[in-house]
Write a protein that binds this DNA or RNA. Structure first.
Lengths: 391, 391
DNA sequence: GTATTTTGTTCGTAAGTCGAACAATCTGCC
DNA sequence: GGCAGATTGTTCGACTTACGAACAAAATAC
C-alpha cells in the first residue's frame, strides 16, 4: 500500500526535505544535501519540484564567508498558511499560521453561547474576514477541541465544557468554510506544538501535562510518533487515579488527577481571579518565600506540597509506563512544580528515573494555534505533491 | 538515512513479503501478490530473491479446486532457526524457534546459582548440544531477562531476582556462543509473542499485563509498534501506583501494583504451592462457586474482589493513557480476573472504555521462547538481505 | 477435446537515484 | 587585477526497480 513504485521514493524525499525546513527553518541547498543525505543532482530535482508546488522559494545569495560557489537559501513560501480554530467556553480563537509554525494572525472572538451553529458560524465569518484582500494560499483548517475527538471522522464524542456530544465538527466546518479540515483534542495539539517547536523539540519520547481552567489534559510522543491510541483518545492523564476513592470527577470515576488537583483551588488560595491565572506562578513563589513585610505562607506551603504530591503520583505512573526522555509541564501545573519542593519523578523506578528531565513549557499563548495548524501540516508534509494535487 | 535509492524499494518489499509469511503462514504466490499489492512480475523477483537467501521455499502443487493455472505455495524455510534463552531463579530455559514462531526444541536446565558466568556457561553448552548433528541454520540468539535491559547495548541494569546489576549480558553471550545476540525484558517479550501470534494478534494498540512469582510486568503495542521508551524500560505497569502510601515495594516506592497484588497471597489463600501456580485459576473459580460439599468461600471472595479492585486501578490508568483496543492478561492476573466479578475498565473515561476488550492470554509455556526469538526475527524481517549478508 | 480461467514469464517502458565530468562563482593571495 | 583553490550547481549516462502488456502454461468447465 505505502511504497512500491519508484514514485514513492520521490514522495518520501519531498516529504523529508519539506519536513526538515518546517522543523528547522531555512537553510542552503548545500546544507540540505548534507543533512538529508541525497546527492546534489537529486536534491536539485526535489527542490525544483517543491518550488513548482509553490511550497518553498530559493533566494540567491547567502555569502557564508567561506570559499566556493554560494548556495541558494531554500526557505518556506510565506504565503502558504493554515487556519487554526479553538473554541472555548466564552470565545473562539481563530488564527492564520504559516508553514513552519509562524503565527500570522490571531484573534479572540467572544461568543454568546457555545451552540455548534453559533461557534461554526462565527469561526467561518472570521476566517472569511481574515482572508479578505489577502493573497495567502490557505491549505486547510485545524480545530483544537477541549474534549474527546474521534480520529478518522473528526466527530467530537464529548466536550463537557462546551456542552457538545457526538458533534460531527469536521463535517460542519468543512461545509461552512469550504476548507479541508481536521480536528483533535486541544491538549494533544498543545503538546504537538511543544514537541515540534518548544520544550519538547527533538525529543522522541515525551510526556506532556497541561493544567488549565477546564482541568488537566495531556499527550505523549512515543518513538517520535504522536500517541493517539486506537480511536484518538489517548493521553487522558487528567483521568488517571492519584487517590483511589478520592474526589468524584465529572468523568464518573473518583480520585482522578483532574478532580484532585485543580486550578481554582490554587487561585483561591492566593486570592487571584480566574482571569489572572497567568500570574499564578509568580504569586505562588513570592508568597511561599515571603515578600515585603509578610511572612512565608505556611498554610499555602502545605497545600502546594499536597497537590504536588498528588501530581507526582500521576507523573510517576506515566514515567514508569512510557519511559520518556522528558516531561513537559504547562499551565498551572508548571506553576505548581516551580513552587513546590517535590521531586516529581523521585518515586519512579531507578533506571527509568535517571534519564528523565522535567521541564516547563516554552511556548506561550499561541501554542494552540500552532498545534491546530500542525493538523494540516502533518497531512501536507506526509505527501506534499499528493496533498496539493487533490489527495 | 533510511530510504532514498531504488534498492530500498526492494528491501521494503522483501521485508513485507517475509513478514507476511512470518505472521500469517504459508500462502500461494497468487495470494501473496493480491495481499501485498505488487505486480506479478515483481512478486516473482521478490520470491526468487527470498528463495536465493534460503529463507523460503516454493512447492509446486496447491490444487485449490478453482480454474486456472495452479500457483506454487510459498512457505518459510524450516531449517532457519533462532536460539531463545530465558534465565530464571532456579533454571535456564533454552529453546530453538523457527521462523514463524514454531518452537522446535525447548529444555529447562537447572542451575546451581544465578552467577552470570554460570548461567552463560550453561546456556552456551546447551546450545552447542542442541545444535550438534543438526543441520539448522542459526541466525541469532534472543535473551528474555526478568529485569530491566537497556536497549542499544543490551546491558542488564537491574534484575533483582537474579541478583544481577549492570551486566553486559549481550556481550557475554555473544562471546560465549558466537551468535549475534539481543536481549530485552521478559514481560515485554511475552507480550511480543502474544501480540504476533496470540491473543493480541492484529491489534495495533495493545496493553499486556503478566503476573508471576516474581511480580507483575507488562508491555504495550502503540500504533503497531512495540513500546520501548527512550531507553527500553517502558511498560513497568507493575510499578504503577494503585494505593498511595500502601505496601512498600522493592523498587523503593510504596503502593505499587506489584507490591499490592501478588501471586503468593492468592496461592496461600487457596492453599496451593508455588509450583502449582498453573492450577490457581481453576482452584479460585471452584472455591468461589463452592464445590462438592463445601460452601462458597466468602473470605476468599473478599480477598479476590479487593485484589481485582486494585488491579482495576492500574488497568484504568493504562486505558485512559493509551486508549488501547485490547488488554491481555496473563499468569495469575488472568486467573484473578476470571474469578472476580469486577469490570476492570468500568471506571475509565466513557468514550475510551467502549472500545476496549479484556482478554486472557492465548499462548502457554512457550510464550517466552517465541518472544525471545522475535528479537532475532525483528532484525531479520526489517532487512532480510542485509541481515544475512552481514548487516 | 475445446473453451475458459488463472497464473507464471518475458520484455519493453517509465521513474528515480547516483556519480562523474564540467561549469559557475566565491575566497585568498600575490 | 589575475590566478589558484574550494565549493556548489548542472548535465548526462549507468543502474536499479517496478509496472503492464503480450504470451505461455496448466488447471477446470462443458
Amino acid at each position: 500500500m505505502t511504497s512500491q513504485t519508484t514514485e514513492d521514493l520521490r514522495r518520501r524525499n519531498l516529504s523529508r526535505v519539506l519536513t526538515l525546513l518546517h522543523e528547522e527553518g531555512a537553510r542552503s541547498r548545500a546544507e540540505l544535501t548534507r543533512e538529508v543525505g541525497l546527492s546534489r543532482s537529486t536534491m536539485a530535482g526535489v527542490v525544483a519540484e517543491l518550488i513548482g508546488l509553490g511550497l518553498v522559494t530559493e533566494s540567491t545569495p547567502a555569502l557564508t564567508g567561506g570559499a566556493g560557489r554560494p548556495s541558494g537559501v531554500v526557505r518556506l513560501a510565506e504565503d502558504v498558511v493554515a487556519v487554526a480554530v479553538n473554541p472555548e467556553v466564552d470565545a473562539v480563537h481563530v488564527g492564520l499560521v504559516g508553514l513552519g509554525g509562524r503565527v500570522v494572525k490571531h484573534v479572540r472572538i467572544e461568543t454568546p453561547d457555545t451552540e455548534v451553529a453559533t461557534v461554526v458560524g462565527l469561526a467561518a465569518a472570521t476566517v472569511r474576514g481574515m482572508l479578505a484582500g489577502d493573497s495567502a494560499r490557505v491549505l486547510g483548517l485545524g480545530l483544537a477541541i477541549p474534549g474527546q475527538v474521534r480520529i478518522g471522522d473528526g466527530v467530537v464524542r464529548q466536550a463537557t465544557h462546551l456542552g457538545w456530544s457526538e458533534v460531527p465538527i469536521v463535517d460542519e466546518v468543512t461545509k461552512a468554510t469550504g476548507l479541508r479540515s481536521w480536528a483533535a483534542n486541544a491538549a494533544t495539539l498543545a503538546m504537538r506544538a511543544e514537541s515540534r517547536f518548544g520544550a519538547g523539540k527533538g525529543v522522541a519520547d515525551l510526556v506532556y501535562l497541561i493544567g488549565g481552567a477546564s482541568g488537566v489534559g495531556g499527550g505523549a510522543v512515543v518513538a517520535g510518533q504522536l500517541l493517539t491510541g486506537a480511536a484518538g483518545y489517548a493521553g487522558e492523564f487528567g483521568h488517571t487515579v492519584v487517590r483511589p476513592g478520592g474526589a468524584r470527577c465529572h468523568c464518573g470515576a473518583a480520585g482522578c488527577l483532574e478532580a484532585e488537583v485543580d486550578q481554582a483551588t490554587l487561585l483561591a488560595a492566593v486570592g487571584l481571579d480566574a482571569a489572572d491565572a497567568g500570574r499564578l506562578g509568580r504569586e505562588l513563589t513570592e508568597r511561599l518565600a515571603g515578600r515585603g513585610d509578610e511572612d512565608p505562607d505556611s498554610a499555602l506551603a502545605g497545600l502546594v506540597e499536597e497537590l504536588a504530591g498528588l501530581l507526582a503520583v500521576a507523573v510517576r505512573n506515566a514515567v514508569n509506563v512510557l519511559n520518556p526522555q522528558a516531561i513537559v509541564l504547562s499551565g498551572f501545573l508548571a506553576a505548581l512544580r516551580d513552587a513546590a519542593p517535590v521531586d516529581l519523578v523521585g518515586d519512579a523506578v531507578a533506571s527509568i528515573r535517571e534519564g528523565v528531565e522535567v521541564r516547563d513549557a516554552a511556548l506561550g499563548e499561541e501554542q494552540l494555534m500552532i498545534g491546530a495548524a500542525e493538523l494540516v501540516w502533518a497531512e501536507l508534509l506526509a505527501d506534499p505533491a499528493g496533498f496539493l494535487l487533490g489527495g
